[in-house]
């Protein structure tokens, strides 16, 4: 095998190989992890992270980056908790829809203001965090008890966490959208060559707005899932999820340079990210040191998946 074919193989199936290796390593160290109950509770705990990974895939497919997702998830959790006494179940829907609209606005602004996505979303991160802090006065807010949406999300059907089922449904819908719709075609093409796609008559601002709406909406859904489990929210509840989410997307094989990858690969990447966390925990290292693992994984994954022909000058 030449170097190129090996690289090609790694790009195509690398994530699955890595998942298998890590799974083997983790289950050797802690055999209990392979029990159904352990897996199920792991998936339930990590459903918020997985849904964020699903959403974050779309901007990255365009070659953009949404750094505001974790702050959006926190803000959504706060808003849902605060609105729950008044709106009941509707609070969840309102928050997710509102987040999608705000995300869409972010995406639209990137094109209109011609400001790079990481700047807009970094700014948005600050805005969401500030609003969350202000609304909660930097404190915890609890959710009103007995609201059906949150109770459903926190429980199980057929022994499987409902939150995880929702992740699978959303991932499946996005996959269908990417494969079967004109929008999906435009998203991949946009990531491959934005200018050529624009000159082909594609409404690039709308495509970008949709991708960011999806990522914000999913992040808000993640926030809603979090409070359905913990019943409490704070303005920083989901902040630590930004980097694992990005790790999940790029480790899954979605290239940061755009145009390559998909939602299902990201889910596999997400499982890897979860196992890295578990691995760090069972190895007895302090939990923060998972960041070292994430940092190095992100570097290796991007090094393997970036299409260097597309970046002329490295900046």
């Amino acid at each position: 095998m030449t170097k190129d074919t090996i690289l090609m193989f790694l790009r195509r199936n690398g994530a699955l190989v890595v998942l298998a290796i890590i799974l083997t390593a983790v289950s050797t160290a802690a055999p209990g992890i392979l029990r159904w109950r352990a897996i199920n509770s792991l998936l339930q705990d990590n459903a918020p992270l997985l849904i964020m990974i699903v959403g974050a895939t779309l901007p990255i497919l365009l070659g953009c980056l949404d750094l505001s997702i974790a702050a959006m998830a926190s803000l959504a959790a706060v808003m849902a908790a605060m609105l729950s006494p008044a709106l009941g179940s509707a609070s969840a829907y309102v928050v997710v829809a509102g987040a999608a609209m705000i995300g869409g606005l972010q995406g639209w602004m990137i094109g209109r203001l011609q400001v790079p996505s990481f700047v807009i979303s970094l700014g948005a991160l600050g805005i969401f965090k500030g609003i969350g802090m202000y609304l909660t006065a930097a404190d915890m807010v609890g959710i009103a008890p007995g609201i059906s949406v949150y109770e459903t999300l926190g429980s199980r059907s057929f022994g499987i966490s409902n939150a995880f089922i929702l992740v699978l449904i959303v991932a499946w819908l996005f996959t269908l959208m990417l494969k079967l719709s004109n929008l999906g075609r435009n998203i991949y093409a946009f990531g491959a060559n934005e200018i050529a796609v624009y000159i082909s008559g594609v409404r690039r601002d709308m495509v970008r707005a949709f991708a960011f709406a999806a990522s914000s909406g999913c992040a808000a859904l993640g926030g809603v899932m979090m409070i359905s489990q913990t019943m409490f929210a704070s303005a920083t509840v989901a902040n630590s999820l930004l980097l694992p989410a990005l790790v999940g997307v790029v480790v899954g094989g979605t290239a940061i340079s755009g145009g390559v990858g998909g939602v299902l690969s990201s889910l596999i990447g997400g499982l890897i990210a979860i196992l890295i966390r578990v691995g760090v925990t069972i190895s007895g290292l302090p939990p923060e040191s998972q960041d070292v693992a994430f940092g190095i994984t992100i570097l290796i994954a991007v090094a393997l998946t970036t299409d260097r022909a597309k970046i002329g000058l490295v900046k």
């Binding site: 004109n182 075609r185 435009n186 991949y188 093409a189 491959a192 060559n193 200018i195 050529a196 796609v197 000159i199 082909s200 008559g201 594609v202 145009g259 390559v260 299409d307 597309k310």
Partner: peptide, 24 residues
């Protein structure tokens, strides 16, 4: 190379990018 073709994609995606939806 920069404005015409959508690199790293297939012939069929390049042909169908603009008007593919009209046949959908």
């Amino acid at each position: 190379k920069t404005e015409g073709m959508i690199r790293n994609t297939t012939v069929s995606e390049n042909v169908a990018i603009t008007y593919g939806w009209q046949h959908g």
